[in-house]
């Protein structure tokens, strides 16, 4: 291919540069912020109950309410 083909190819290029970053080998724990959370599982707010009471306490209250309503 001749060098003259170069300019036309330049036009095809995207504005953004595409470069591969060198892979860094950081230990996993250095890449995470220290949150003071030392649990071994993934904590997710959505997975926990929002209410303050345990389910057994809530259910007790529900059953009591129903009992009152029935009487």
């Amino acid at each position: 291919m001749s060098r003259a083909a170069l300019p036309s190819l330049e036009n095809l290029e995207d504005d953004d540069e595409f470069e591969d970053f060198a892979t860094e080998n950081w230990p996993m724990k250095d890449t995470e912020l220290d949150t003071g959370d030392d649990t071994l599982w993934e904590n997710n707010w959505d997975d926990e109950d929002i209410g303050d009471d345990d389910f057994s306490v809530q259910l007790q209250a529900e059953l009591k309410k129903k009992g009152v309503a029935a009487n």
Partner: peptide, 12 residues
């Protein structure tokens, strides 16, 4: 597409 652009520029 981006990758192709980089490769071709490099080649020339």
């Amino acid at each position: 597409q981006k990758y192709q652009a980089t490769v071709m520029r490099g080649a020339f």
